[in-house]
Computed example of a mutant assay.
Amino acid sequence: MKQTFKLGTIGGVPVGLNWSVVVTVILVADILAQSVLPGADPSAPAGARWAAALVTAALFLGSLAAHEFAHALVARRHGVRVDSVTLWMLGGVAELEGEPPTARADLRIAAVGPATSGAMAAAFAAVWAAAAALGAPPLATTPLAWLAVTNAAIAVFNLLPGTPLDGGRILRGLLWRRRGDRVGAAHAADRAGLAMGRAMIGGGLAALLVGGWFDGLWLALVGWFITSSAKAEDRWTDLREAAGGRRVADIMTSHPDHGWTWQTAGAFIDTVAVASRQAVFPVVDTEGDPVGVVTVERLMRLPAEDAGVALGTLTVPLQAGRVVGPDEPASAVLAHAPFMGDLIAVVVADHHLLGIVTTADVQMLIRRSRLRPTTSAAAGRAA
């Protein structure tokens, strides 16, 4: 999940917001200010209702952040690196790099999220009870009750047994511990998430047909997200299995066509680009280190009068983690989405460009992992 607004770093973990979180704030504030709070206190001024609604929306986001940070903290305790925590429209995402080392760690990392939401629900309920006992006005007690109920609902919803929800990861951990097969357990949890997401989409469409447009649309949206995420995680499970034990050098395209920062764009097009099958080219400096990439599309848009500009001025800088060594684990590269076009990473050693990793390399890796020995070959080995 891409961070649109970076809020800073907490405990070494980058924290940010995706732009879609604005939708959540608006929806929560509108529901509270227009429906919930007027019912609790019809005489309250509109300004006071909106102020209470916005504060409640902020506390709601804070409770979502607490849920994700719980995942992050327990993951780090078990040696799993945490790249970031991002809040977005449908909740939050703690992006973990790597997999839990054991089934027990997997269970703990997954279970702490719903447990934290349940604890937040209990805390808000306790504050609500105390405020009500002290005679606090409805504009103070009603948001607290709403936060308690909402966090409890989040805890229960996240326990549904299907990826990418926490319940799906709990299911994965339980199956992993019982069967001793992490890959098989992951596929089972992914399939459960896919079935659950499709059921939600169907329920949402049915609600739309009978006039419940808001609830139906929201349920269908959540179902679509779960379905898409379950498919993505199932593919990642295949990738992780295919990359097991392999190095970057085992999957890369060796000796790729590339350019130099100092050569003219026109010369590069005439001598390299027109004859190459690549869509993206690494560009290296005078010492042989890659500094960026240039795409065929960028070169096609280059005006004829600019053919004499240095190729280095047309490159897009490489992001952190996109330059890797040949002996690094292949799984570390496969976790990245394509950077430019179909390029995933550039492989370098001792100031020398060795290769590139592209989506075609990844697809070939998956296809090769699915190959099975023929009957004759198996019989020959047996003999």
Rank of each mutant, 00 (worst) to 15 (best):
D289E: 14
T295G: 12
H336Y: 13
L299Q: 08
A320T: 00
A335K: 00
V284C: 12
A304I: 09
D289C: 13
P290G: 03
T295W: 07
P338Y: 05
V294Q: 07
P303M: 06
V309L: 10
G288S: 11
P317M: 03
E305D: 15
E297M: 14
P329K: 03
V309P: 01
P303Y: 07
T315V: 12
V333N: 01
Q319G: 15
P317V: 02
V296C: 04
V291S: 00
P326V: 07
D285C: 13
T286V: 08
D327N: 10
G292H: 04
A330P: 03
A335C: 00
V309I: 15
D327Q: 10
A307D: 10
V291A: 00
G308I: 00
H336N: 11
P290T: 02
Q319S: 15
V309F: 06
G288T: 11
E287Y: 14
G325R: 13
A310H: 14
T295C: 06
T286W: 14
G292Q: 04
S331T: 15
H336L: 12
V291I: 14
P329D: 05
V309G: 03
A307F: 01
E328R: 11
R322P: 02
R322L: 03
D285H: 10
L311F: 01
M300R: 15
H336I: 09
E297I: 11
V323N: 01
G312L: 04
V284G: 05
H336W: 09
V291N: 02
D289P: 08
A337S: 12
A335W: 00
D289M: 13
L334K: 03
V284A: 08
V294Y: 00
L311W: 02
L318A: 05
A307V: 00
L318T: 00
G288R: 13
A320L: 04
A310E: 15
T315E: 05
S331H: 09
L299M: 14
A335Y: 00
R301Y: 12
D327Y: 02
E287C: 09
P329E: 03
V323P: 03
T313S: 14
V323H: 04
A310R: 15
R298E: 15
E305W: 13
E287G: 13
D285T: 11
M300C: 08
L314M: 15
S331W: 10
V284H: 04
V323K: 05
V309H: 05
R301M: 12
P290C: 02
R322A: 01
G288L: 11
A320P: 06
T315S: 05
D306W: 10
L334Q: 01
A335G: 06
V284P: 05
E305K: 11
L302A: 07
G292V: 01
G312S: 07
A337F: 02
E297R: 15
V324P: 02
P303S: 07
A330I: 04
D306M: 10
E297N: 15
D327A: 08
T286M: 12
A335V: 13
G312I: 06
P326H: 09
T315Q: 06
A330Y: 03
G292Y: 03
T313M: 08
V324L: 06
M300A: 14
S331D: 10
R322N: 01
P317I: 02
V291F: 05
G325W: 11
V294F: 00
P326M: 10
A330W: 02
V294E: 06
G288V: 10
L311A: 07
